[in-house]
């Protein structure tokens, strides 16, 4: 019996250690995204951020979302970002170029205000309802469960998502071909 308790507390400590590593990586790479002056490094930091977020999703037993995060975000979306950054070159402003200004102070003040507001609310609510998570079954967050929810309770969200993706694809094609036509017209005029 005591070995069971010991094993349970060891699992608890291990979860804390994994959480701490993932959360630290999340926070550090988030700061790196905002503070690098080269957008290429920012995009690489965002990939690290998305990967450590996937670890946090796994700790929250959202296996399918964690897999989708790595495949869709860290895979597809960030590859597109890196392509565009490679195409445009790594030119960007340094985050603090030009010295302090009213605009800078206002930006930092707004961000700090958001953070403090949320942390104060969390501090007031901590220990109460937030510390009593519901009991979940083994298939919570599994692909089968997510698929069942998508095709029964949340069918409308599923269909709207597909329409949004279709519109975005059409928009991307229209933007690309429009830019090409403009370029051809300008080349013809000169």
């Amino acid at each position: 019996m005591s070995s069971l308790v010991l094993a349970a507390s060891a699992g608890n400590v291990l979860t804390w250690v994994v959480w701490f590593g993932a959360a630290l990586a999340c926070v550090a790479s988030g700061i790196a995204v905002v503070s690098f002056s080269n957008p290429f490094y920012s995009a690489l930091a965002l990939i690290g951020n998305l990967a450590s977020l996937a670890v946090l999703y796994l700790l929250l037993s959202a296996e399918f979302v964690a897999a989708a995060q790595v495949l869709v975000y860290a895979g597809a979306v960030m590859v597109m970002f890196l392509f565009v950054i490679a195409y445009l070159g790594g030119r960007a402003d340094a985050p603090w170029a030009g010295g302090p200004s009213l605009h800078r102070f206002a930006a930092v003040g707004a961000a700090v205000a958001i953070l403090v507001e949320v942390l104060v609310v969390l501090g007031l609510k901590a220990g109460g309802e937030l510390s009593h998570p519901a009991r979940i079954s083994g298939d919570f967050g599994s692909p089968a469960e997510i698929g069942r929810l998508f095709l029964t309770d949340h069918l409308l969200a599923f269909e709207i998502t597909s329409v949004v993706l279709l519109i975005a694809a059409v928009g991307g094609v229209v933007l690309g071909s429009h830019a090409r036509r403009l370029q051809a017209e300008e080349a013809g005029l000169e």
Binding site: A8, G11, N12, T15, W16, V18, W19, A23, C26, V27, G30, I31, V33, V34, P39, N49, L56, L59, L60, R91, A92, D93, P95, R104, A106, A107, V108, A110, A111, V112, I114, L115, V118, L119, L122, K125, A126, L130, S131, P133
Partner: peptide, 28 residues
């Protein structure tokens, strides 16, 4: 097991604030 939901929400708030700072501060 492990940390409460509160801790995850703290990380989420920090990420949101960092992103907001980037949107407001950066010009690229």
């Amino acid at each position: 097991k492990g940390p409460d939901v509160t801790w995850y929400l703290g990380v989420a708030a920090f990420m949101f604030a960092t992103g907001a700072l980037g949107v407001l501060l950066r010009r690229s």
